[in-house]
């Protein structure tokens, strides 16, 4: 027997749950996106850091064996991402293209040196470590000089530090807002049942018995919210990956999985905690105080 009246009642209930689900999913979605940002600031920063080359200029006297040996030891070193040997002819060609005229022609000689361009792993791109690597290389007799853009590295490190700091602060603020928002929408839905809660107490139900179905309901709504958030995150990650494949967003299933899982855990935890406190609040009130 489902009359149109009952259907209407049910629809009204569903729409009030709807707002809880929406607020949970929006907030979790936002948190997920922030998580993605935090996880990827490092990756973006590393991406920039690994563009920086350390050029080792070799003396004319350097022997072939020494060069290949250096190349080998460089490619084995843990700070190297890649090392490319650039013979001076190739360097000259590149430079000619860059300045737009064939300078060897009027100089009559190639003044450039043979060099090895080393691209470092991001973790080693700090002023201190690069200094160390430079000194180590200079100790070899056939190395003339080691050149890299010092101010750029200092600037890069400073900026990355500053940006990560603010990303963290903003994430913290958003997490706080998230908890607050979910909490208040759950509180509201529990508040609407405060007289029901009181009645249940009047007939001899214990607090935990009354609380249980409320918590279940919230967790169920929370899980629906989590799924909605997941779908949103999935869509964003998919389209970001299409636009910026160099971020390798999808290449790290473990990190992504951990992020989705932590969104789930967070969603369930917040729903549980908010419902617990919201019901507890009304369970502890005396009947008269419900009207205040």
């Amino acid at each position: 027997m489902s009359t149109s009246f009952e259907k209407y009642q049910k629809r009204r209930l569903i729409s009030s749950y709807f707002s809880v689900v929406i607020s949970i999913s929006l907030v979790l979605f936002l948190l997920g996106m922030l998580g993605l940002l935090v996880l990827n600031t490092k990756k973006v920063a590393d991406h920039f850091k690994e563009q920086i080359a350390l050029s080792i200029y070799l003396k004319e006297t350097a022997k072939e064996v020494e060069i290949t040996q250096l190349q080998k030891s460089l490619s084995l070193a843990d700070y190297t991402k890649s090392a490319v040997y650039v013979p001076k002819e190739e360097a000259a060609e590149k430079l000619s293209v860059e300045i737009g005229e064939d300078f060897i022609d009027y100089l009559g000689d190639n003044p450039l040196q043979n060099s090895i361009d080393v691209f470092l792993n991001a973790d080693f791109v700090t002023p201190e470590l690069m200094e160390e690597i430079t000194n180590e290389l200079l100790a070899k007799g056939f190395v003339d000089e080691v050149i890299y853009d010092k101010p750029l590295i200092a600037l890069l490190n400073d900026n990355i530090k500053r940006i990560s700091f603010w990303v963290l602060i903003i994430s913290g603020v958003f997490t706080f807002i998230a908890v607050l928002l979910i909490n208040s929408s759950i509180r509201l839905s529990v508040y609407s049942k405060r007289f029901t809660i009181k009645t249940m107490q009047m007939v001899g139900a214990t607090k935990s018995f009354i609380r249980k179905p409320f918590i279940w309901k919230s967790i169920k709504l929370g899980v629906v919210g989590i799924f909605v958030a997941w779908i949103g995150m999935g869509v964003v990650i998919y389209s970001l990956n299409k636009t910026f494949p160099e971020l390798l967003l999808i290449e790290q299933p473990l990190i992504l999985g951990a992020m989705f899982l932590s969104i789930f855990v967070l969603g369930v935890f917040i729903s549980w905690l908010s419902t617990f406190f919201a019901t507890q609040r009304f369970l502890n009130l005396r009947t008269d105080e419900l009207y205040y």
């Binding site: 029901t196 009645t199 107490q201 009047m202 001899g204 607090k207």
Partner: peptide, 23 residues
């Protein structure tokens, strides 16, 4: 406080406004 539910189980309370669960 924690004994109150058990007290109420031995009582039957009837209110002016019925206080049934409307849901």
């Amino acid at each position: 406080e924690k004994d109150i539910p058990f007290l109420r189980r031995k009582l039957g309370v009837v209110f002016q406004d019925f206080k049934l669960l409307n849901d």
